[in-house]
Every structure is written in structure tokens, then in C-alpha cells.
Simulated scan of single mutants.
Amino acid sequence: MEIPVVDFSAYGLRKNNVSVDYLEKLSDEVRKAFTDVGFVYLKNTGISQDEVDKVMVVSKKFFSLPESIKKPFSRGSFSCNGNHGWISVETESLNPRRPGDLKEAFNTASLSLDINWPSEGVEGFRDAQVSFFLRCKELSLRVLRLMALGLGLEAEVFLSAHELIGSDVNGTTLRSLYYPPVNSTSVKEKQLRCGEHSDYGSITLVFQSPEGGLQVKNRAGEFISAPSIPGTVLVNIADLMQRWTSDVYVSAVHRVLLPPAGDSGTRQSLAFFVQPDDEAIISCCDGSDKYPPVKAGDYLLSRFKESYGKK
């Protein structure tokens, strides 16, 4: 089964006068995609391809800088937020059973005004990241509202646990990801650009450059390609949302493969990882005890320990 494409135009950014009938139709389409596959492409969201390209261009300039310039901005260097900053190649193992992932990243996890941002050789880096973060936040809240409606719940059920996105007591993060050229003859055994994993929080928005490699596991347990479709955002369910909905919305496993032998190309993506507020207690919204309640911030930290445990 392929990942469905859903037209989001009537509820895209800046569209506020949406009929109840349309919201019901759209929420049904989103629910079907998330229950059948765990992923959906949304088109006509109001986030343009030009906006995506602008962030990717300035991000690639940063990743092209010498390590000596990037290192002062490393993840773990910011007292206000331990997840903010640069991550070097092979530092992270999203599948801890594999060697470190062949990617680097910059996490925009804090919008605090008093932290240092890269500027040398990357003019406008902070503004591009923060502006795109806020655009993704707005779209995410619309998706979360539809997801609640699709379950027959009050629209605010999920939104009320995401009120602090953009503050340092909410773990939502915009990741600019860069996959450098790979010599397929010299990689470590079982190494990938990004190992198989599911995301940690509520939902994730993904914007990709044209180069392929992303695969997602469907409900039949088969990995299928999730190519870049210009003008769309790929949205997937993450683990806390699966717990929250007692497995109605299922978090989908995904990975990024190595490029074919002889392919020296690079790859980029932007991933907006939506997390509930740190103090939010996530318990099954159907009233069952299928999963025990968990504090969102504690759950996120436990998952970080798995991904960075080798370092």
C-alpha cells in the first residue's frame, strides 16, 4: 500500500473559515491514512516549496563549514536546552543495534533569545530556522486538531497538551538533517544513513530534498519507498501518540538507506518533531489501561539515552 496524498488546501495556513462538513471529511481522510499506513502526504498546506528550499540552502552552508566552526554549537552545549545544537556524523544511532548513523544534524530545540547561533558564513541561519519552526508549529496544531476529530474526541484534547511549543519546557524540535556522500565500500557492517526507528513524540512533519532513500514500514510489515513529492509535507505518527490513542494511530518504523554503489550524492531533510509539553501526562484517551500514564518529558529523555548511549 502506498502512502496516500491528502489535499489540505481548505485548512491550510491562514485558512480559518472552514466548514464543519469539510473538517469531518478531512479528518476522516487523515485518520484512514494514519490507521492504514502511519504516514500521509499533505499537499497545499500553505508552507511553500520556496520556504523549504530557503531553510535547506542555509542549512547546507552550515554543514559545509569546518568542524572547528560547528563544534562550539554542539548539542549539549546549551544550558537552557540539552537537545539544541549540532550533531556530528555517527554520533547518533537511531537503531542502537547498528553503527552510528551516517548523517549530521542541527536541532532547533530552543527559541531563547540569549543563546548563540551560527553566523560565520551562514548569515540568516537563526532567522530561517526559527521562522520555519513557527510555520511548522502552526501546521502541526491543525493536524493535531483533525486527529482528535477523527477519533470522535473534542478538538482540544491533543492541543491542550501542546500549548508550550517553542519554549524550553516543551521538547518540540526542528531538525535540519544532512546526509554527506557515502563510499559504500568503506561503511561499517550494517551501517545506514539512518537506522530503523520510530519517532518519540506526537507527530512528525518531514520535508525532503529530491534524493531518495527514505523507507517506511507499512502495517503489513513491508518497507515501502517514501519519495520526495514537491509541495507536500510527509506526516507520521510517533510513539507517544500511539500510546495516547491505544494503538488506533500507530507509530510507523522508518529508515534511510545507503545510496546505490557509485552514487556520491548528498541528501537533506527537515523534520519537525512535535512533542507534548514536558509536564503533560500522556494516558490512553479511551480510558483504558493499555499503556500506563507517562510524563512526556521523562519519556523523551529515556529515548535520547537509547539513541546516544554509545557516546
Results as ranks from 00 to 15, higher is better:
D7H: 02
V274K: 05
I237Y: 12
Y41P: 10
V18W: 12
R303W: 09
G265K: 12
N83Q: 15
T45H: 01
G38P: 06
V55A: 06
P72L: 07
A261L: 13
P276A: 11
A155L: 00
Q275W: 01
F133H: 05
E51S: 15
Y41K: 06
D298H: 10
Q215H: 08
V233F: 07
L153N: 03
S27G: 06
T266K: 05
A161F: 03
L164T: 02
P66E: 12
E279G: 09
G121Q: 02
V294L: 12
V57M: 05
P210G: 11
Y291G: 04
D263M: 08
L257Y: 01
G262C: 11
A252Q: 04
F78W: 07
H162S: 11
F207W: 02
C285A: 09
Y308V: 14
G124K: 09
F106A: 00
L205M: 09
K70M: 09
G287C: 12
V58A: 09
F272I: 02
F8V: 00
Y200D: 10
K71A: 12
S283Y: 08
K290I: 00
T204N: 05
I69S: 11
E196K: 11
P72K: 04
T45A: 01
E104K: 14
V248D: 04
K60E: 13
Y299M: 06
Q191N: 00
V169F: 01
D278W: 08
G166W: 00
E29D: 14
E211C: 06
A128M: 00
P118D: 04
F158Y: 05
S68T: 15
S68D: 08
E163M: 01
A105S: 10
K305Q: 14
F34K: 02
S198W: 04
D289I: 09
R193E: 07
W86E: 04
S283V: 15
L214I: 10
T245D: 11
L23W: 01
R14C: 15
T245V: 09
G195D: 00
G297H: 11
S225A: 15
A296L: 01
E154I: 08
Y178R: 12
T35E: 13
Y178Q: 07
Y308L: 13
D28H: 13
F125S: 02
S167K: 02
G309I: 13
G171S: 08
F63K: 09
F223H: 01
L94Q: 08
F272M: 05
